[in-house]
């Protein structure tokens, strides 16, 4: 695998052994990660798993208790100021000024980064964001989707090399989410590195690489296919009648680790293939129910990881 180990210049984020505690509770534990330049790296994990804390440590908003690393080649502990100049950070909660207009917010950010012609830069960004006609509207009066676009615009205004997006699409409608992801891919195509945290599976699937983090530990990382392949999960997709009854009958049986309804079908998964097969063997004969062996979905994999990690770390 040494051939694929990227050289230093190709790596945007390279951290080792990051730990952070708040009030005696360890939120991030011995976290290491490498993100190649130009990739979209998804940070997936349940609430409170340490995603936000990790992102904040990367951009210098929090100081790690232990561990070290570089961000865009700069030392995270020593060069926070240099990192800040080249990183765009989009906070989980809208954190631009609600009582400033769209234009005023963008001009403020442009000036902070020392952009030469702040007005022109802001005007350009308004056009790019499709916010024409709304530039004098107060940011606080925008809808969720527009706020999110504005926030993305603000953190890309200075042409950063790295974007840190903390649950950027929370509370945004599907259309706006799709537009948002198209924009992210367009930015990555131009060489920008994007680290994005989310707990939407469809968004995870849009990332080049993902890391699943729970209780402050990275449980698995790689491309979506790699992550699915790494899990030893066997999954059957069941379609037919009376799935609710079937679901209740399967839960807790030997070999069955997960039963989850997906619309009109049911996903039945287990780590131990033989035990799973043994349990479902009599049920497969049932009339009106169709069983099909299938790839586990990313969600199946994550839910399974989450259940397992709960036993390990809590």
């Amino acid at each position: 695998m040494t051939a694929t180990t990227p050289s230093r210049a190709d790596i945007a984020i390279d951290v080792h052994g990051f730990s952070k505690s708040f009030g005696g509770r360890e939120v991030v534990h011995d976290l290491s990660m490498q993100v190649k330049r130009g990739t979209i790296y998804g940070f997936i994990g349940p609430n409170g798993s340490g995603k936000t804390t990790t992102i904040r440590m990367l951009c210098g908003l929090l100081t790690p208790d232990s561990g070290e690393g570089t961000c865009l080649g700069y030392d995270i502990r020593r060069d926070a100021d240099k990192i800040k100049r080249q990183v765009g950070y989009m906070t989980q909660r809208f954190s631009l000024y609600q009582d400033l207009s769209v234009r005023e917010n963008l001009e403020f950010v442009a000036r902070l980064y020392g952009v030469r012609d702040a007005r022109a830069t802001a005007r350009e960004m308004i056009k790019r964001l499709g916010l024409n006609g709304r530039e004098e509207q107060l940011a606080g009066e925008l809808s969720g989707g527009w706020k999110q676009r504005l926030a993305l615009g603000a953190c890309t205004l200075s042409n950063p090399q790295l974007l840190l997006l903390d649950e950027p699409t929370a509370g945004v409608d599907p259309k706006a989410r799709r537009d948002f992801w198209n924009e992210i891919h367009a930015l990555a195509a131009r060489g920008l590195t994007v680290l994005v945290s989310t707990h939407y599976m469809d968004e995870a699937e849009r990332c080049h690489e993902i890391a699943y983090i729970a209780y402050g530990h990275v449980l698995v990382h790689g491309t979506v296919d790699e992550v699915i392949a790494k899990s030893a999960l066997t999954t059957y997709t069941v379609t037919g009648d009376n799935l609710t009854t079937l679901s209740a009958a399967l839960s807790g049986k030997p070999g069955i680790d997960m039963v989850a309804p997906f619309g009109t079908s049911l996903h039945v998964s287990g780590r131990d293939k033989s035990a799973l097969d043994a349990t479902i063997a009599p049920l497969r004969e049932q009339h009106g129910v169709h069983w099909q062996h299938s790839e586990p979905s990313l969600e199946d994999v994550f839910i399974e990881l989450m259940t397992r990690s709960k036993d390990n770390f809590q």
């Binding site: 951009c59 210098g60 908003l61 100021d81 800040k84 100049r85 990183v87 950070y89 906070t91 909660r93 809208f94 954190s95 631009l96 000024y97 609600q98 950010v109 902070l112 980064y113 020392g114 603000a154």
Partner: peptide, 14 residues
């Protein structure tokens, strides 16, 4: 309190 500090601190200002 309004949450704007987080954004402000992430930008290059002393």
């Amino acid at each position: 309190e309004r949450g704007t500090m987080e954004n402000l601190l992430s930008m290059p200002i002393t």
